[in-house]
Design a protein around this nucleic acid. Structure first.
Length: 597
RNA sequence: GGUCCAGUAGCUCAGCUGGAUAGAGCAACAGCCUUCUAAGCUGUGGGUCCCAGGUUCGAAUCCUGGCUGGAUCACCA
């Protein structure tokens, strides 16, 4: 039984014996004592004052006496106002450390077949342009939450739905056909996603020229937009694509494959991956039959123009279109179909959509409609909604060229990392290959940590000009602590000191060491909490606090210089566990650790 | 206008399932490398926790109402 549960149970006993009152265990608040107060656990006694009918101090005193007499682990207690601070025997903490040493995957649980299956959709790009900063936040969040889910004992399926069809890709295709002169990624030496993106931009440019020309002839802007020959051609191309036109499909297939090859490179550099990829071109018709079945059941209705709608006015929302008058499907229809096939494929217990908060309404409606259609799993959908990434000057606008490209961003981070490393000169004697790998680890660590440490639901500001800090509450700071500990461990091994073995429980432990063991021990609960709240940011906060605490200890105390071999051993094991927790925590964020930096 | 989200130090953010004196980082200033990696450590200054009510022994945290900013309410995705 863990210490806090033990105390809770004893407190309920105390209240029964002292005041003859039954209290539920969940009403007993036991927390870790704050650092500036002596003690290990704190019981808040205010809620029990009405039972004791005595002052909070006296009540705390009485409960404290009872606990001290009934629990041998309790060494002493103090009372401050209504707070009962309990001091545990120091050997308890060494035993806690030993338990952690015994568990080679402390904090990371392994799911079995009986555990829940969680499906997580993230990334979900359009195939007409390369990934940008917004996608980076999405990918990092999605990947991290997948890792956290797995560590919290879930079977995880990472999925991606690629929006590979529609007018946007036709625009790129058309521009390539007209202006591309047969250029390919190979002939131009350009990444496929960037090449296709260039043609998307080119389309827009030419299209604007046509609009301007038409408006000069006296047409209204709306008419000009509709009548511009390029737009008409693009729409015609989409019709041909849907009709299965061989030539258009071949072009579509070729250009999409360029994009996928480009995405693969970006995904790989970001370190994200998927277990199952769905393509809209395969799934876009799926929801139709479900919608029609819903129509027959009478949960949906048809308007005079033949379009099909869901009436959500009873839920305080509007009516939502599900099939156009011409029978074609919309985004919502696709998502209904995709959800159905996913449930058939994997039978998930939870389905998480990592999608920006601009789609909050969409997912609210999706869950409602699936519920109306009678799917009992509709409440299992969860929209992990995250805020926008803004630049200091405001939103990113592709038309104004202020979009931060994902590949450029990664390059920039690695360059910054390289520059800093070279200035510090700690990697002399390493091969170029080893150095580059470390620069990569640090640069990406900085980027990922910077983005993940912000609560997902909040908008965040990203300042590319100032780049990202490598000091303070940052990825490199945490990686640095890891590297430092590795250096100590290497030296310990050279001296023949065993690492990762148990510590004698009678060793004289000081309060700083106890605090570190407590902090290490919180990791497991932190992982579960981060999962409960779907928030990698909680892992960031936790690991930052742990690292800060360790660095301060490292500064104040020697480890290998300690003369008492038992204390040396204790400190070494604490350092090792800090490093292991750093490694596991950063892994949950998709961040690697360097052995030196 | 309806709905949802956010508002905490000059800036970027923690803390929010109610608990003790609201915390970090950056920026500014002052210290610390003959000693395990100074990408580090220590200190100083910096606050109407948007405002007003309410619930409570106790509110940055919960409730109500405002204010400000953002998102969304398409036969776009």
């Amino acid at each position: 039984m863990s210490a806090d549960l033990m105390i809770i149970s004893s407190v309920t006993k105390a209240i029964k014996e002292l005041y003859n009152q039954e209290v539920e265990e969940k009403t007993v608040q036991v927390s870790m004592t704050r650092k500036d107060v002596e003690g290990d656990f704190t019981v808040v006694v205010f809620p029990f004052v009405r039972f004791s009918k005595k002052a909070p101090e006296q009540t705390a005193q009485e409960i404290g006496e009872f606990l001290k007499n009934n629990l041998e682990e309790i060494a002493d207690f103090t009372v401050i106002k209504g707070f009962l601070n309990i001091l545990i025997d120091p050997s308890f903490w060494i035993n806690e450390l030993n338990k952690i040493i015994d568990n080679p995957s402390f904090g990371i649980q392994q799911a079995s077949e009986d555990d829940s299956t969680v499906m997580i959709e993230y990334s979900s790009p359009n195939t007409n342009k390369p990934l940008h900063l917004g996608h980076v936040r999405n990918n990092l969040l999605g990947y991290s939450i997948s890792k956290i889910a797995a560590a919290a004992k879930n079977n995880v399926v990472k999925t991606n739905i690629v929006n590979d069809r529609g007018i946007h890709i036709c625009k790129s295709m058309l521009a390539w056909q007209k202006f591309g002169e047969g250029v390919t990624p190979e002939s131009s030496g350009k990444k496929g996603d960037h090449l296709v993106g260039d043609f998307y931009v080119r389309f827009d440019k030419e299209y604007k020229k046509e609009i301007a020309a038409l408006m000069a002839e006296g047409k209204t802007e709306d008419d000009a937009k509709k009548q511009a020959p390029l737009m008409i051609e693009a729409q015609e191309m989409l019709r041909k694509w849907e009709a299965g036109d061989a030539e258009v499909n071949e072009l579509w297939s070729m250009m999409n494959n360029w994009v996928y090859a480009g995405f693969d490179v970006t995904y790989k550099r970001l370190g994200v991956d998927f277990d199952k990829i769905y393509y809209e071109s395969d799934t876009y018709k799926l929801g139709k039959s479900t919608v029609e079945a819903g129509l027959e059941k009478g949960v949906l209705f048809r308007k005079e123009d033949n379009s099909v709608w869901a009436d959500l006015t009873a839920e305080g929302l509007d009516e939502k279109l599900l099939l156009r008058g011409d029978g074609t499907s919309v985004y919502m229809t696709q998502d209904i179909g995709t959800a159905e096939i996913r449930f058939k494929d994997f039978g998930f217990d939870e389905m998480i959509y990592v999608v920006g908060n601009e789609q909050n309404y969409h997912f609210q409606v999706l869950a409602l409609i699936l519920g109306k259609l009678g799917y009992e799993w509709a409440p299992k959908l969860y929209h992990l909604s995250y805020g926008m990434v803004e630049l200091p000057e405001g939103k990113m606008k592709s038309r104004e060229g202020t979009v931060v490209d994902a590949d450029d961003l990664v390059d920039e981070m690695i360059n910054t990392s390289r520059k800093m490393s070279e200035e510090l000169g700690k990697l002399d004697g390493f091969s170029d290959e080893e150095k580059e790998n470390i620069y990569r680890i640090i640069g990406l660590g900085a980027l990922k940590y910077f983005i993940l440490k912000v609560d997902p639901k909040k908008n965040m500001t990203f300042n590319p000009a100032e780049s990202i800090d490598f000091n303070g509450n940052t990825g490199p700071f945490i990686q640095y602590t890891y590297a430092r500990i590795q250096s100590i461990l290497r030296k310990a091994v050279e001296r023949g000191i065993s690492v990762d073995t148990k510590v004698d429980a009678s060793v004289a432990i000081n309060s700083r060491e106890i605090e570190l063991i407590k902090s290490i021990g919180k990791f497991e609960a932190q992982v579960l909490d981060a999962w409960k709240n779907h928030s990698p940011a909680q892992i960031c906060n936790y690991i930052y606090d742990l690292v800060k605490e360790f660095n301060s200890f490292y500064h104040d105390y020697t480890i290998l210089g300690e003369e008492n071999p038992q204390i040396l051993k204790l400190r070494l094991e604490i350092a090792n566990q800090v490093a292991l927790v750093i490694k596991r925590a950063l892994d949950l964020l998709g961040i690697e650790v360097p052995n030196r930096m």
